[in-house]
Deep mutational scan, measured.
Amino acid sequence: MSIQHFRVALIPFFAAFCLPVFAHPETLVKVKDAEDQLGARVGYIELDLNSGKILESFRPEERFPMMSTFKVLLCGAVLSRVDAGQEQLGRRIHYSQNDLVEYSPVTEKHLTDGMTVRELCSAAITMSDNTAANLLLTTIGGPKELTAFLHNMGDHVTRLDRWEPELNEAIPNDERDTTMPAAMATTLRKLLTGELLTLASRQQLIDWMEADKVAGPLLRSALPAGWFIADKSGAGERGSRGIIAALGPDGKPSRIVVIYTTGSQATMDERNRQIAEIGASLIKHW
């Protein structure tokens, strides 16, 4: 067993022997301040990774656009098919120029040779490549099948209805392509620590998230040296922004954090800054 596999296998073990965790309302004060600064709703939840206990939450059962955070769930569904012998990570998928959609920095470079399922998941999570996500959605049967996968996990809230990039439209009061912070946090925890996926697939999923290259201005910008984070960000229309993450000190994750916002007129930089400040408060009061 590799060191990384050992780390993920012992996530519940280490967490069980940690000192009790206590909620700190100071972080919620910052979440509410972010709402004021952005002029928009902000949803927040913080779960203990081992027990699933909610440590703090704000608007945990209000719907927010998922945006690209759905790509972690998508690759979880792909990995479940791999575990069941219905898919192979090494299978190569070929596609054409007509398949390319807006923001496809990886797939646009491989029109000639195609990409493997493993490479597509890596591109979808680490670079948020939209064509990679659409190609992977095709392998599982489309958005409705991802929703069905989530329902089978016990998540009857999260739903995907459309493809990239239309799913980022974020129309107010439109339930399409949305989740709730509580539902997303619980589902992410199941994917990373539950028995739904094999140990190898859980490790692969967290490795992809740990290698995320496009979430630097968010929670990662607030992390002290030595902290662990595996995350996936999302951005959408109407001032929408979000991030889902597993993080913790001492090089291992111990909490799940989900943050979503929508309806702001603020710039992307300002949305990023507010999420980073929430992260800084979380870490300060850990």
Rank of each mutant, 00 (worst) to 15 (best):
M1T: 01
S2D: 07
S2N: 14
I3W: 07
F6P: 07
R7S: 09
I11K: 05
P12D: 07
P12Q: 10
F17K: 07
F17H: 10
V21R: 05
F22R: 10
H24K: 15
H24L: 10
P25R: 08
V29T: 11
K32V: 11
D36A: 15
L38C: 07
G39C: 10
A40M: 09
L49K: 04
N50A: 12
N50K: 12
S57G: 11
F64Q: 02
P65F: 03
S68R: 00
V72S: 06
L73P: 09
A77K: 11
L79Y: 02
L79D: 01
R81D: 05
V82F: 07
D83M: 03
A84T: 14
G85C: 08
Q86R: 12
Q86V: 14
E87P: 02
E87L: 11
S96N: 14
S96T: 12
S96L: 11
Q97A: 13
D99A: 10
D99Y: 07
Y103G: 06
H110F: 12
L111E: 07
D113G: 11
D113T: 14
E119K: 06
C121N: 02
A123G: 06
I125W: 00
M127S: 08
S128N: 00
D129M: 00
A133S: 11
A133N: 02
N134S: 04
L135C: 06
L136W: 00
T138G: 13
T139W: 06
G141W: 03
G141Q: 07
G142K: 04
K144M: 12
K144N: 14
K144E: 15
L146C: 05
N152Y: 13
N152F: 12
G154A: 07
V157K: 15
T158A: 05
W163M: 13
E164K: 01
P165T: 11
E166V: 12
E166K: 13
E175K: 12
D177Y: 01
M180W: 11
P181N: 01
P181R: 00
A182W: 13
R189H: 13
L191P: 00
G194R: 09
M209L: 08
M209S: 02
A211T: 10
K213F: 10
G216P: 05
L219H: 03
L219Y: 03
R220L: 03
S221T: 13
P224L: 04
W227T: 02
K232L: 00
G234P: 00
A235F: 02
G236D: 04
I243C: 08
A246P: 00
P249V: 06
G251D: 11
K252Q: 14
P253D: 07
V257E: 02
Y260Q: 02
Y260T: 03
T261K: 03
T262C: 10
T262M: 09
S264F: 04
Q265R: 13
T267R: 12
N272T: 08
R273I: 10
I275K: 00
L282V: 12
L282T: 09
I283P: 02
I283F: 11
W286N: 03
